[in-house]
Computed example of a mutant assay.
Amino acid sequence: MPKNKGKGGKNRKRGKNEADDEKRELVFKEDGQDYAQVLRMLGNGRCEAMCIDGNKRLCHIRGKMHKKVWISTGDIVLVGLRDYQDEKADIILKYMSDEARLLKAYGELPDNIRLNEGIAGEFNEEDDDGAGGDFIKFEEENIDKI
């Protein structure tokens, strides 16, 4: 039989999760960095994000975060801007939902950014005329008959 050279298999690597869920210090942007909201995931460690300065950039997830920090649409991230390519950026940090709320409370994020949304900017309150065409309201007796 072959000798085991590693320290464990797939399940050990899966359980090896750094405890980032605990309270961590809030990181603010510095020179060459900006806040962004992820618009859509493109695959291959890339996504499209709308930066606070109004530019839509193609963002690359850095290797330290790849397959460890899961990024989805609507997340607030900190991106590092590139000097030589303005249309591309690198994702440095993903903010948790409570951290994003704190950033908005501190005035770092503008008021038009909608937090905790699936896709950034898809639903506007001005467009909603109260018709409720997407929702069906059931009466109590109708629910029992189904």
Rank of each mutant, 00 (worst) to 15 (best):
56 K>L: 11
126 E>H: 07
39 L>G: 00
9 G>M: 10
75 D>F: 13
35 Y>W: 07
4 N>W: 03
60 H>C: 07
24 R>T: 12
4 N>Q: 11
140 E>F: 08
104 K>M: 08
104 K>V: 01
58 L>V: 08
115 L>W: 09
33 Q>F: 03
119 I>D: 02
20 D>W: 13
124 N>T: 14
4 N>I: 13
126 E>L: 11
47 C>V: 06
130 G>N: 11
43 G>V: 10
68 K>E: 03
2 P>I: 05
42 L>G: 01
1 M>F: 12
129 D>Q: 08
27 V>F: 07
108 E>V: 11
106 Y>F: 12
20 D>S: 09
39 L>Q: 10
63 G>W: 06
82 R>E: 00
137 K>R: 14
25 E>C: 01
111 D>L: 05
103 L>P: 02
138 F>K: 06
65 M>D: 10
42 L>T: 12
33 Q>D: 06
67 K>G: 00
93 L>H: 13
124 N>G: 09
23 K>C: 00
85 Q>D: 12
72 S>Y: 06
129 D>S: 04
8 G>R: 05
102 L>D: 08
11 N>L: 14
64 K>D: 11
28 F>E: 07
130 G>I: 04
68 K>M: 02
51 C>I: 05
32 G>C: 09
102 L>A: 09
107 G>S: 06
121 G>I: 11
80 G>E: 08
116 N>C: 05
9 G>E: 08
140 E>K: 11
49 A>M: 10
37 Q>Y: 01
39 L>C: 05
101 R>N: 03
71 I>Q: 09
115 L>Q: 05
35 Y>L: 13
21 D>F: 12
138 F>M: 12
83 D>A: 03
145 K>Q: 13
9 G>W: 12
69 V>K: 08
113 I>D: 00
66 H>I: 13
66 H>P: 00
134 D>F: 13
74 G>K: 05
111 D>P: 00
98 D>P: 00
9 G>A: 06
73 T>S: 15
117 E>C: 13
49 A>Q: 04
145 K>W: 03
1 M>L: 12
89 A>C: 15
64 K>L: 10
11 N>K: 15
81 L>G: 02
123 F>C: 04
68 K>C: 01
41 M>S: 01
113 I>K: 01
76 I>K: 00
108 E>C: 11
73 T>N: 14
40 R>H: 09
127 D>C: 06
4 N>G: 05
50 M>W: 01
30 E>K: 11
78 L>P: 01
133 G>R: 14
131 A>F: 14
41 M>D: 00
140 E>Q: 10
77 V>P: 03
99 E>Q: 14
8 G>T: 08
17 N>E: 15
47 C>H: 01
14 R>L: 15
92 I>E: 11
124 N>F: 12
73 T>E: 15
53 D>C: 07
4 N>M: 09
5 K>N: 07
